[in-house]
């Protein structure tokens, strides 16, 4: 009985993981990819951990799985926020189909502080040049 519940939880979690990874490949720009991937993969992995906890309900496995799930729920949105903020500050533009950009209008009216890098035109050379400290 508990095996069946664990299998159902793990199967649903796997499905959400795969949706997140498909979103990571299909969506058009960094911010949309962060959204899809973070939401889906966080909940999917937490469901897999919950399935593990249900499966090993008697041992130390379930306690550690619960600790890991809490840790993922706490830190994964923080990582997404940090990446999105870093991407905006390093000059990645929004997708052309975006309808509004209040952050750019109100916080960075003169554009991001770093040099603007066109996503399509970026090559290995510009990546290497971007690492130099800008004065």
């Amino acid at each position: 009985m508990s095996d069946l519940a664990a299998e159902i939880l793990i199967a649903v979690g796997l499905a959400f993981d795969l949706f997140g990874c498909i979103g990571l490949v299909r969506l058009p720009d960094v911010y949309n990819r962060v959204q899809a991937a973070t939401k889906c993969v966080t909940l999917g992995t937490c469901l897999i951990l919950a399935g593990t906890a249900v499966y090993g309900i008697t041992g130390a496995m379930s306690i550690k799985a619960a600790l890991c799930a809490v840790f993922l729920l706490l830190t994964s949105p923080v990582a997404a926020h940090a990446i999105a903020r870093g991407a905006y500050k390093s000059g990645v533009r929004l997708w052309e189909g975006s309808v509004i950009d209040r952050y750019g209008e109100e916080v960075h009216p003169a554009g991001p502080p770093a040099e603007r890098i066109e996503p399509a035109a970026q090559t290995e050379h510009t990546v290497a040049a971007g690492r130099e400290p800008h004065e």
Binding site: Y55, L72, Q122
Partner: peptide
Amino acid sequence: RGPTAPDRTVAIDILGTLVVGFCCVMAI
């Protein structure tokens, strides 16, 4: 594929989370 550094960072983060799921599979 890229094309920018933040894309790669997101993908690395997601890869790490998937490995956590894989550890669960190995544990069971």
